[in-house]
Design a protein around this nucleic acid. Structure first.
Length: 482
RNA sequence: GCCGCAUUCGUCUAGAGGCCUAGGACACCGCCCUCUCAAGGCGGAGACCACCGGUUCGAAUCCGGUAUGCGGUACCA
């Protein structure tokens, strides 16, 4: 896998990494991570950190490459950052030049732009016109005297390139349709199509699994690698992840940074399961898999050929499944970052089972548990008095019911102020006064949590404690009679 | 424009000539359960397998063409 640190880890890159990982693990191969940081204008070390950290977070590990952002490269082919391999590229570019497979190009951006416009006007394919291929020594000398920067262009052989894609099967391209492309920029910086081929050879890469957007680039890579006398790896192109309108997934239309999902409390296990099934399926009706189980089952040849729309509803569903599968202790631990520090570990452990079935994302816990740390006054200010009144009842009926509830609860002293005890007493009270339990509980819920939707009432009251519970009901009573 | 890839319920997919009057999951709708919300259970609706033609006794599955979508076509990756 060879991400470019020009942005945070993208959903699509994450899935490509996952497929690479699953493929390598499944066949017992070596998984290499290489950082493609040749785009100095856009790349930054912070993005590299984001990519590596989030790959680790997903549970994806690699055998060679930088294991930690900014850390040491591990593996027999180090370094694994392209910015540190410049001598290699320079040497290989020189070889290309010597063998006549490449030539110097003195064209300026303006000249290139003019040619392109001309071609567009004549409805010709926009490609390099080969001017610098036919330069005289005098031309070269005068360009040099002008102080022009010189780029290196690969001379693309006019031939048909055929390869057997791991996912798509036989694919064929006519390279005579390609223009000669630049391999080293005027400022000496080697370009993607070139370095990727040089590094694949240097790092003994046998299988290249990448996004479908590279399918059309592959004939360039093959031409280049043949000119350099390299052995040809197998290529596999996985389909793109799409926006709901079926265009290539972009941050304009969808949240694409893995970090963003991580922050909202999607579990890495759910993310991996979800991503794996975006374009692949084990062919059975099972759908919950750990990353290890996926590696066992994953066949690169079974990857679907068409693009897949990112279906957030399904991710949400899967995340819920994974959250519910957590033990209370595990959930409490994962909930820590989303809840106020004043809630101690013991409270979290007691809170976990109340929230477990209600969480789509861990971050949802913040709102669901807010009533625990809000002040009594804050909670009291959250609702209008009529919110206390159940449907079909009046405020005049609700006030006495709530005061019965208050008296009932007040009768329980602290060590016994626990969920089951409270529930049975309240149910009995409701019954005794001719109220349906649900209606009777409504004003209590609103009084105690400030909301009509809350975690289970009696567990909530237990966590809140006797004093605060009663204070809040008292407040509600005052609101009702006002 | 040119080149390439793709096309099964709204979405992710199963399907590799008869097992398909096309299966599952998410989402949606209804019912049940129920202290709210969820979760769970049961059920429903939803795909003329893009279209046209061919091969075959028989095609979602094989072959052509068309359409549509996407990708590539940079001194970005």
């Amino acid at each position: 896998m060879a991400p470019s640190p020009t942005g945070p880890l993208h959903i699509g890159t994450a899935r490509t990494s996952l497929y690479n990982y699953l493929f390598a693990r499944h066949v017992g191969g070596t998984y290499v991570l290489r950082v493609e940081d040749t785009d100095v204008a856009r790349g930054t070390p912070e993005w590299e950190r984001d990519i590596i950290d989030n790959l680790h977070w997903l549970g994806i590990s690699w055998d060679e490459g930088p294991q930690v952002a900014g850390g040491e490269d591990i593996g027999p082919h180090a370094p694994y950052r392209q910015s540190q391999r410049m001598e290699l590229y320079a040497g290989e570019a020189a070889r290309l030049l010597e063998s006549g497979h490449a030539y110097h190009c003195w064209c300026t951006h303006e000249e290139l732009e003019a040619v392109r416009r001309e071609q567009e006007r004549n409805h010709e394919p926009p490609r390099y016109n080969g001017r610098c291929l036919r330069l005289t020594d005098a031309d070269r000398a005068s360009f040099a005297a002008e102080g022009r920067k010189v780029a290196i262009r690969f001379r693309v052989p006019a031939e048909t390139i055929r390869f057997d894609d791991l996912i798509r099967g036989e694919v064929e391209f006519d390279n005579s349709l390609l223009g000669d492309f630049v391999v080293v920029r005027g400022d000496g910086m080697p370009l993607y199509h070139f370095v990727v081929v040089v590094d694949d050879q240097a790092m003994a890469i046998t299988h290249v699994v990448r996004g479908e957007d590279h399918l059309s680039n592959t004939p360039k890579h093959i031409a280049l690698l043949r000119a350099l006398g390299y052995r040809e790896p197998r290529f596999g192109h996985i389909p793109l992840i799409l926006n709901p309108d079926r265009s290539k997934m972009s941050k304009r239309k969808e949240q694409t940074a893995i970090t963003a999902y991580r922050e909202q409390g999607y579990l890495p296990e759910a993310m991996v399961n979800f991503l794996a099934f975006l374009g692949w399926s084990p062919g059975t009706e099972e759908e919950i898999f750990s990353i290890g189980e996926l590696a066992e089952r994953f066949e690169i040849g079974d990857v679907h050929k068409a693009g897949a729309v990112f279906d957030k509803d399904r991710l949400d569903y899967l995340n819920g499944v994974y959250i519910r599968a957590l033990t209370d202790a595990q959930l409490a631990l994962r909930l820590r970052p989303y809840l106020p520090a004043i809630l101690d570990d013991r409270s979290l452990l007691r809170l976990a089972p109340l929230l477990k079935e209600r969480l789509v994302r861990l971050a949802d816990a913040t709102e669901l548990a807010a009533f625990l740390t809000e002040s009594d006054a804050q909670v009291g200010a959250m609702y209008e008095a009529d919110l206390l009144v159940p449907k079909g009842r009046s405020a005049a009926e609700t006030a006495p019911a709530l005061s019965i509830a208050r008296d009932t609860l007040a009768g329980v002293t602290e060590p016994d102020f626990a969920s089951e005890e409270l529930e049975s007493l309240c149910r009995a009270a409701a019954d005794a006064h001719g109220w349906k339990a649900g209606d009777f509980f409504r004003p209590i819920r609103v009084a105690v949590t400030g909301r009509t939707v809350s975690p289970p009432l009696f567990g909530s009251m237990e966590l809140l404690g006797r004093e605060r519970t009663l204070a809040r009901i008292e407040l509600a009573l005052a609101r009702l009679s006002a």
